[in-house]
Design a protein around this nucleic acid. Structure first.
Lengths: 210, 210, 210, 210
DNA sequence: CATGAATGAGCGTTCATTCAT
DNA sequence: TATGAATGAACGCTCATTCAT
């Protein structure tokens, strides 16, 4: 029985490993070459499997992209939500969001590219902010904004759905500094400090004039 | 001689027209289908020329993309710089930039898509903020920020190169509301008001405490 | 020893069963999808065995086809020869052949399709009327014709090798009425009656004029 | 104007030629290797065009098969109908049909194979006796039978739809003698004489007994 | 300059077959 | 024996690019 369980786990692991191997190979390759320029054989080679093996785990090339997305962005969403759930202050939450985002993007440049580049193209479906991990991810910002408005921390004249875009757009564009080969000398702290400084000043409720 | 010149001019005009026709056809097609999914024959059909004719004006498919970019973004740069040059106040300049950008993006959704989507993919060369019209366009923001810092309007603790990304990123992401089919009910005024309100509050020099 | 024999028989039986199961699964699948369109995995699924198992019983896909043929046609040959051996009259023999053929084809449409379709394609080897069960099957007709000529029942100016084709071709084409979805309202009796009526009238020795 | 017409004709011819070249190359290749085993590149090579060129004239591989069919069978239909229209006697008509069919099949063995083999497989649509040139071709027989019944030449107890199959099946199977490499020593006259002798004797109205 | 038929390299995907378990 | 995950050769089809007219 132990043996059976072991065998089961062993096979599970193998399959899990192969699926993961393809996902991360694809993330790498997509980031490097872009979705259309990337070849299935590139991914296969990177994952050290045969071309055909990929089709045991994914329906087609586009399905790989979607999977990379849901999987990788899912991880970030989970991580972010976990970190934020420990906080009460919406201001702190946004700080966490920003730092966590920029850290992830700097650390995992492959993913960063995939998010930044592929996110906006390939298929309109992915781009619409609905029914996917990405919309969930950006939606976290809107939730924080609303919370801040309820607790009187943030200006109530702001539309959370527009503000979420302002914040995410700023973060996203700013994170590009690490992908443009020329301006690599910024630190996460420096960049997030600037974004948060501008943004929080911009949305915080001004102290009531006496 | 007159005749020759006339013929020359005639052909020049025709050529000029055809070049333009292809550019705008390409803008439309790239926006609609994306660079890789777009076919040369699509562009040719849209421009009402033969496939082969395109190669009399452009070296290859990618060259068309670059030209679309330089040309179309060039127009925006010119327009923006012209508008801004009439102003003294950096705050007003940023307002003009934002309104002008969002208006352009809402009006010319084709271009908006090309900028937003293709900008970030296809080729790293185009993406780097250097030596192209696009970097010039974003660079305008940095110049305004610097000016505002010199005239003591804007906080001096902010890095113009990061702030330009914060502002542009916010504008860019926000402008996407018109491309995502679901949230079309925002006006340019509404959106630009929100962005400017948050951003300007965030970067303006706070009034000195007495 | 008993045990060993038992085990042997047990496996033999199992193997026998599996072999048969694959054969009939293949017959079904080939008939439904055609040889080239049929996939090994279809046959495996139909036979409820693993893909790899098939290769324990057959060398390759084509080998399965050949086996299906020899096996299934073999059964018909045996049945037909058994029925005919009880008769003396060549006219009756042909009647039996026709009814037996059309009945088989109507009953086992899978096999009918395989015979009609695959028979004529795939590989020239199978198609040639030699060294296989099928040629044996058609050959029965020639034998009956020759017998009829010897017993003065059939016209002696006819070439048995051509006549066998005339009869089999007629039967084969006529049996297609049950596979073309539109004309399903014919009975075996009706059809065989027509074929036999035309054919027998055509080959029987005319009564000598006084 | 002459020039324009000439140019038009010239191009027409070229296109016509290329289309025809592909059709006859395909006929040859399909006959030799069968539909599934035939490669597009085989056809291209045989037609001395590039692979891609084929797709300027046909939608896909299967479309080539259909075209070969409709085109080649269409020719036979036209030829047969033309020959038959000169006759009054249904008996003569059937003789013409048989001789014309067997002659065509012997002459154009490629087409013969395509008709005999591909006809019965690939796609059920083609196989059904409806809405295509082939059904038209076989339908000619039924028409002749009906005519013969009306003019009291043929037995009225026979179903023309079954009889057409009897006759066509006989012809088709008999024509295979030229494709099976072993029995090439039969002549068209010999074979058609046998088929017609059996068949006509079988369907003709017997002389009334005085 | 303009055309569009022709080219052919290149890629996504399938599936018969193998082999480690 | 039996399994089914893995393999990788093979092919239909696309489309950027060329070039004869």
């Amino acid at each position: 029985m132990f043996t059976l369980v072991s065998i089961f786990l062993f096979y599970e692991m193998k399959a899990e490993n192969k699926h993961s191997k393809i996902i991360s190979a694809a993330t790498k390759v997509f980031a490097k070459k872009g979705f259309f320029t990337a070849r299935i054989s590139d991914i296969a080679k990177e994952a050290k499997v045969a071309d055909g093996t990929i089709y045991l785990y994914f329906n087609n090339k586009y399905d790989i992209l979607l999977s990379v997305f849901e999987e990788e962005v899912g991880k970030i969403v989970d991580k972010t939500e976990k970190l934020i759930s420990k906080e009460d202050d919406p201001v702190e939450m946004l700080k966490i969001y920003a730092i966590q985002h920029l850290t992830s993007m700097k650390k995992n440049k492959n993913l960063a590219e995939v998010i930044q580049i592929e996110l906006r193209q390939t298929n309109k479906i992915i781009r619409t902010y609905r029914d996917n991990k990405f919309s969930e991810y950006v939606g976290i910002i809107a939730k924080i904004i609303k919370l801040g408005q309820q607790t009187d921390s943030f200006r109530s004249d702001l539309n959370p759905d527009i503000v979420k875009r302002i914040f995410f757009g700023a973060l996203d564009e700013v994170s590009r500094v690490w992908n443009s080969s020329l301006e690599t000398h910024y630190s996460v702290e420096e960049v997030s400090e600037q974004v948060l400084s501008v943004f929080l000043t911009g949305i915080k409720k001004p102290p009531a004039n006496v």
